[in-house]
């Protein structure tokens, strides 16, 4: 791993120096990783691999990644958290939805480096003490899934919606689940599931 790291890094840096522009106020250099700008020291990360630390589902994870790696790819490729899926990879379909500090985001459109220091919750983190989350249970009972590829994203988006709004009206569903797409057509089940999960959460 270490070997790959230095190789990839050195390549990028060489490439970088070669094409580096001359018009930058502060030149792009690899030398000091700290630049003095506007009277303060600012750390410059990359373009090679950078040590990063994440808090995912309450646990600490570490990896050395280039700044260009998205949170989604870090989760899937580095930490074996493959619940979030890469589908559109352009912030449209919602299959990669995770929570950042409790808010739903498209992990494909967040850089891993900017997710450091924030509470990341993935679908894998929804079970409590080995028990399915009420939303997960409701998805199963209402058959709110077919191939299941969009399901983790939908489950997380539903959690975000119910966390914010425990009694969603049909109109709230439009606004709360408008960022996720399914190809098999499981929306009828999802609508029933979220209604059931809301009832269960109110009861419990």
């Amino acid at each position: 791993m270490e070997k790959q790291h230095s190789r990839a890094g050195s390549l990028s840096r060489r490439d970088f120096l070669k094409v580096s522009g001359i018009t930058l106020t502060v030149p792009l250099v690899i030398g000091p990783r700290v630049l003095k700008v506007a009277g303060a020291e600012v750390k410059v990360f990359g373009p090679g691999r950078v040590p990063m630390t994440f808090t995912i589902n309450g646990k600490t994870y570490r990896a050395e990644l280039e700044p260009r790696v998205t949170l989604l790819d870090a989760l899937r490729n580095e930490f074996e958290l493959t619940g979030a899926k890469r589908v559109c990879d352009r912030g449209t379909c919602g299959a990669c939805t995770v929570l950042l500090d409790g808010k739903p985001v498209y992990a494909c459109s967040v850089l891993a480096i900017e997710a450091q220091g924030r509470a990341i919750t993935t679908v894998e983190g929804l079970m409590q003490n080995g028990k399915l989350h009420p939303i997960q249970q409701a998805f199963i009972e209402n058959d709110a899934l077919q191939c299941g590829f969009c399901t983790p994203g939908f489950v997380v988006a539903c959690k975000a919606l119910l966390d914010r709004n425990p009694n969603p009206t049909p109109e709230d569903l439009v606004a709360g689940l408008g960022g996720n797409l399914c190809r098999c057509g499981t929306y009828v089940g999802i609508r029933a599931a979220i209604a059931q999960a809301a009832r269960m959460q109110r009861g419990g």
Partner: peptide, 15 residues
């Protein structure tokens, strides 16, 4: 209910 539902809703299902 489908038998592989739990795997799919928890993200454990491997594609």
């Amino acid at each position: 209910s489908r038998v592989d539902g739990p795997e799919k809703v928890t993200g454990r299902a491997k594609y």
